[in-house]
Design a protein around this nucleic acid. Structure first.
Lengths: 111, 111
DNA sequence: GCAATACTGAAGTGATCACTTAACTATTTT
DNA sequence: AAAATAGTTAAGTGATCACTTCAGTATTGC
């Protein structure tokens, strides 16, 4: 469920927009209603709802409606999945550099 | 240089495309030429070059040309910057949950 | 020198994106 | 019950995206 490439696709796509990242940033400081998410953004409430839908479809954000207020919160597991993908690639590269360093050191010993 | 929001924007936008992520994945296993990057992808070489330009503009990939071959490698520092942004948001949320847990435990002690 | 290789750049195209406005529903407040 | 609040939905628009093809430019092998 975490490393489904389609889900990963939706997550990175969701994070690609600055308005959506700002929404995630706001939600990292605690749950918020749709209007609260909209407040710092220079766009219509409607646009914010559309961004929210993208975030929810990606799994990065979850929300529930009580009365007329929808309360949103981030899903740390999903954030971690994106984080993990990047981390794996970076570590693969760094491990490679280490092995290369060892190899160079070894061949130098033999000279 | 690392937390420039414009640069972050370019990075997440670059990672949003599956073909580009596949290129990053390939490069995490070692440097590659443009043709080598193109080989597993079902698109023209020209399209791959365009994707490469996006990756380079974002700082995620660096390349240099020797003779007629351009050799590409990933820039782990840039990957780390994206990783860091996500990690910060996730940790902020988790710290918040911890404090909330402490608060609930404390108020329960008082009952 | 000539052909093959490895890209590079420009122009075009159809699809998707990030909005907008406007009309609507459901819930509270007064 | 009327008005204000909070969100939802649909349709439209202009901009950006992910390609394509085609016509180049250097390099390298024969």
């Amino acid at each position: 469920m975490l490393h489904d490439p389609a889900q990963l696709d939706l997550m990175f796509q969701a994070l690609a927009d600055p308005a959506r990242r700002q929404m995630v940033e706001r939600l990292s400081r605690g749950p918020a209603s749709v209007s609260q998410l909209a407040e710092p953004l220079a766009m219509s409430l409607s646009a914010v709802v559309q961004h929210l839908n993208v975030l929810e479809a990606s799994g990065l954000v979850r929300s529930e409606k009580l009365g007329r207020v929808r309360t949103c919160r981030i899903e740390p597991k999903a954030l971690q999945a994106a984080e993990h993908w990047i981390n794996e690639r970076r570590l693969a590269w760094e491990r490679r550099l280490d092995r290369l360093g060892d190899f160079l050191a070894d061949t130098e010993d033999e000279s």
